[in-house]
């Protein structure tokens, strides 16, 4: 069952038409290949048009599309299933909203880490909707340190509506856990690539987001707050989310223009949910190309450049 977003309705209609036409063609044995081809072309054109003109809020909706691939799907595809999941933060428990482990890509071991959302209602609860607790961030850091020890590059997949704002999360130091990651990731002496594959909500995203290369998929968002919460705080109502999405400049292209990320990874026509294999291949290409580039630098140089990059962010002037 394919899920269509509100603005994707024209695509849904055309696809239904195509299905019907195919059935008719089959039943009546009439050659309809010409009209089928035309319909397919029209679907492509409509999709292209819709996706070329997405508003920031619509992109937020695409980033949350239930059919979008999540972290584990990327890891499985990139490694061809040749990976070992590692669990636990060695202190409290194993956070199901943060996954990670060593995987092999084209003969090279990479440490993969990322927030994981659930693929159905039961799994969404199991994964805490992709909202890690402090032990999730500490598990991530443990795995990063492990990778550093054995000189393996790190790839993080970011997809979270935020760090979990629960009671136990506060007891166990959510703020400290994220802060520690920002600090430690700044000075990891192995290459670090961070890719926002869905939602990049605030500190919960940044907690695994300090990399030599930070990429955003074309239809993702990254900001200090979700447009809904921003609307409720600044406009004191939930009704201004479209406006907030606009004002926050949270899309991949805005983030690139503001030099807050290093690149935008193009998605297949109609979004990543439309063609998983294609987005996996593109992401793999970006990771391998970036590693080739980062391998050329000494660890000291990489760390220096990483720190300098983040330290140059911000706009100030003398008054």
């Amino acid at each position: 069952m394919v899920t269509y977003l509100e603005f994707e309705k024209p695509i849904e209609e055309l696809r239904n038409q195509l299905e019907n036409a195919k059935q008719i063609a089959e039943k009546s044995k009439v050659d309809m290949s010409q009209s089928l081809k035309e319909l397919e072309k029209k679907i492509e054109e409509t999709t292209r048009e819709i996706y070329a003109n997405l508003t920031p809020w619509q992109r937020v909706m695409v980033s949350r599309h239930p059919d979008r691939p999540y972290t584990l799907a990327y890891i499985n595809s990139l490694t061809g299933g040749n990976w070992i999941e590692l669990h636990g933060d060695r202190t409290v428990k194993d956070d199901k909203a943060m996954v990670g482990g060593f995987g092999m890509v084209d003969g090279r071991t990479i440490m993969f880490i990322g927030q994981q959302k659930g693929i159905n209602t039961k799994m969404r609860q199991y994964r805490n909707f992709g909202m890690p607790n402090p032990e999730g961030y500490r598990k991530a850091l443990r795995l990063m340190k492990l990778a550093e020890k054995f000189n393996k590059p790190i790839v993080t997949f970011i997809d979270t509506p935020g760090a979990y704002p629960g009671l136990e999360a506060e007891e166990r130091g959510q703020g400290e856990a994220i802060a520690r990651n920002l600090y430690e990731m700044s000075k990891l002496n192995v290459p670090v690539i961070c890719i926002i594959i869905g939602e990049g909500a605030s500190g919960g995203a940044l907690g695994i987001g300090i990399g030599d290369k930070v990429y955003m998929l074309e239809n993702t968002w990254y900001s200090v707050i979700s447009p809904e919460s921003c609307s409720s705080i600044l406009w004191r109502s939930w009704d201004f989310k479209e406006k907030a999405a606009e004002a926050l400049k949270l899309t991949a292209s805005d983030m690139l223009n503001n030099k807050l990320v290093d690149g935008v990874i193009p998605e297949p026509l109609g979004g990543a949910h439309n063609n998983h294999e294609e987005i996996f291949a593109t992401v793999k290409k970006y990771i391998l190309n970036s590693l080739t580039e980062l391998d050329k630098l000494s660890p000291e140089e990489r760390v220096k450049q990483r720190i300098n990059k983040f330290c140059s962010m911000g706009v100030v002037h003398e008054m």
Partner: peptide, 22 residues
Amino acid sequence: ARMMEAAFSLMQMAKTSAKLTL
């Protein structure tokens, strides 16, 4: 973080933490 600077404020978390390593 200051909402009116959106992702720029978010990155101040990274910036200050990175600077503290030095």
